[in-house]
Design a protein around this nucleic acid. Structure first.
Lengths: 113, 113
DNA sequence: CGAATCGTTCGATGTTCGTAGAACGTCGAA
DNA sequence: TTCGACGTTCTACGAACATCGAACGATTCG
């Protein structure tokens, strides 16, 4: 039932990572998290239903790109920048640079309180 | 009907590139072409039907990752390494490094005559 | 306890994708 | 011109995917 696990460093697969980053919404989420700050689920803004957002966050989590921490009813999301960098050096920063140049993921933002 | 065009440099989109590279066979094809050499269609070896190979090469071409040149009945494929590098610096080399570390695309080879 | 909040999961829907085989178009060779 | 080689396109199909609304489970608050 529950496949919502955080894969270990060595279990992060390139195909899954690339597939996860082939959707604009998910790239936008990664961009929002790119500064390393932990973000609250509810702060994330994207033009999709919350069930769809939950789905995208799960794909990112399963791919090993993000980590989710629960705290009461809320949860917090962080980018696993160091892990991905260790596994696939230069990949994440290249994608982030590309996304910025390309505008991919602009539809996602965050309510900075 | 025919969408098999080579996109211009500025038309290369990140989402399309990432989607193209989210399939192991296509990553393998890119790896085979990574040395910059032009390869003959018929030299490419992958455990798939030729119609499927044609499909994958089309996806790569449409994404702007490869260029196809026809010569008589044969055609030759090259990686658009410089173009992709100009558009998304560091992305391709990071993916190639990652693929090698990960083993992604090992199923594809080339008959070096 | 009861109500509200938060995020996940379920069910359904329409789309896209990877795959293969068959038919086709093109070109070079006999 | 007839034949064979080469690569593309067509058609089909099952799997995976993005999306939504509704229902659910957990937790906090009144």
């Amino acid at each position: 039932m529950r496949a919502a696990e955080h894969p270990d460093l060595t279990e992060i697969g390139l195909t899954e990572v690339m597939a996860a980053l082939s959707d604009p919404i998910r790239v936008g989420l990664v961009r929002v998290l790119a500064d390393g700050e932990e973000r609250g689920w509810g702060e994330l803004r994207a033009p999709i239903a919350k069930s769809t957002l939950s789905h995208h966050l799960r794909v990112l989590r399963d791919a090993g790109l993000t980590r989710t921490r629960k705290e009461g009813t809320r949860c917090w999301v962080t980018l696993r920048g160091d892990d991905v960098e260790a596994r696939f050096p230069g990949l994440l920063s290249a994608v982030l640079t590309a996304a910025q140049a390309d505008g991919t993921g602009h539809q996602v933002s965050v309510d900075t309180d």
